[in-house]
């Protein structure tokens, strides 16, 4: 089964090479090869995750190895989904290397299947984790979209363009991708937090115990809630959206990894 994960990794790496090459040589054929290997990698990765589910007997998002792997799977999937409606090939040149690195990290970590801790044995496990991680991966993508937006916007404002920026999608397209990320990612994140709280209520007897992970996920949620509210009411678009998306990304990063490594707490098995 591990071999399947390695095949997926190889395909992601091939895709990375093609996308980096595409950065240097602006040829459709190279991009198509990158796209094809990413898609194949995604499919193999998905199948191997299903295998792991059947082998372990539980949803494989219970430790750092499993969640990083699931995160890269979701990023690949959402990027492929966005590519269907936008011409954003150039984004592949940062997103594909990034998700490959995340996946390498996942495979680096011990991947043996261990019996599930009793507290995690619940039907809430798949619901809570899948929603939370899909939400996270969508916001990870929008982080890179925002970086592209800010660099292009800066070029237009200051009237100085880097050669690569001529291949970026327009500001309007980047902003509308961010808007889409927002409108998909936020519901996932919200449901992830609510189901987590319900699960906590059943497992620990208290819906909300201000554990660091809970607190930080609430902070993340508030960042995105402010953004959505202000976008709809007073038009926080463009640069403001991009800045908030970047802030939200770091907040997710801290919630997901920072807490585990620095703080600890109830969620420390992840």
């Amino acid at each position: 089964m591990f071999i399947l994960f390695l095949i997926a990794l190889c395909l992601y790496l091939v895709s990375t090479i093609f996308y980096l090459l595409f950065l240097a040589i602006d040829k459709k054929g190279i991009e198509a090869l990158g796209h094809f290997s990413l898609l194949s990698g995604f499919i193999v990765h998905f199948i191997s995750t299903c295998f792991r589910y059947f082998q372990a007997g539980y949803t494989p998002i219970t430790n750092l190895h499993e969640s990083l792997s699931f995160l890269s799977l979701c990023m690949a999937g959402f990027f492929l989904f966005l590519k269907r409606s936008y011409k954003i090939s150039i984004l592949g040149s940062i997103i594909v290397p990034f998700l490959s690195l995340v996946f390498i990290w996942a495979l680096w970590l011990p991947s043996d299947i261990k019996p599930l801790a009793p507290i995690l044995q619940s039907y809430w496990l798949p619901v809570h984790t899948i929603f939370a991680f899909i939400g996270n991966s969508i916001f990870f993508i929008s982080f890179f979209v925002s970086i592209l937006y800010l660099s292009l916007e800066r070029g237009i404002k200051r009237k100085k363009f880097s050669p690569i920026s001529t291949r970026f999608p327009s500001l309007e397209v980047l902003d509308s991708i961010n808007y889409r990320c927002m409108s998909y990612g936020f519901p996932f994140l919200t449901i992830g937090i609510i189901t987590g709280s319900l699960w906590a209520g059943m497992a620990w007897g208290s819906y909300w115990s201000w554990d660091p992970k809970e607190t930080w996920s609430l902070i993340t949620w508030i960042v995105y809630a402010i953004l959505i509210h202000n976008r709809l009411t007073i038009g926080w678009r463009g640069r403001k959206t991009a800045y908030m998306m970047i802030a939200g990304f770091f907040s997710i990063l801290f919630t997901f990894l920072g807490i585990n490594f620095l703080v600890g707490g109830l969620h420390s098995y992840l």
Partner: peptide, 8 residues
Amino acid sequence: ELAKKIFG
């Protein structure tokens, strides 16, 4: 050209 960079 510039308008296309902004509006697509």
